[in-house]
Amino acid sequence: MTASSRRPVSNALGLAVLGLLLESPSHPHAMAATLRERGMDRAFKVTTGSLYDVVRTLEKAGWIEARETVRVGARPERTVYRHTAVGLDEFVRWVDELIRVPADEYPKFLSAVSYLGALGPDGASAALRERAVRVRARLAEARQRHREVLDTGQVPRLFVVEVEYGVRMLEAELGWLEEIVDDIAAGRLAWPEPTSGWVRGEGGEA
Rank of each mutant, 00 (worst) to 15 (best):
R7E: 08
V9D: 07
N11D: 15
G14S: 08
G14R: 00
L15N: 02
S24I: 02
S26I: 05
P28C: 08
P28W: 01
A30N: 12
T34H: 02
T34S: 08
E37P: 00
D41I: 06
T47M: 04
S50G: 04
V55S: 02
T57N: 04
L58V: 12
L58Q: 05
E59M: 07
G62A: 06
W63A: 00
R67D: 11
T69L: 00
R71V: 15
R71K: 15
V72H: 08
R75A: 15
R78N: 12
Y81A: 02
R82C: 11
L88Y: 14
V95F: 01
D96M: 06
V101Q: 14
P102H: 07
Y106W: 10
Y106I: 09
Y106A: 10
L110C: 10
S111W: 07
A118V: 14
P121W: 05
A127I: 10
A127W: 11
R129W: 01
R136G: 15
A137V: 12
A137R: 13
E141G: 03
D151H: 10
Q154G: 02
P156I: 10
R157P: 02
L158H: 04
V163K: 03
V163I: 15
V167C: 08
E173F: 03
W176D: 06
E178A: 06
V181I: 10
G187N: 10
A190N: 05
P194A: 05
T195N: 02
T195E: 14
V199Q: 04
V199K: 01
G204V: 09
G204W: 03
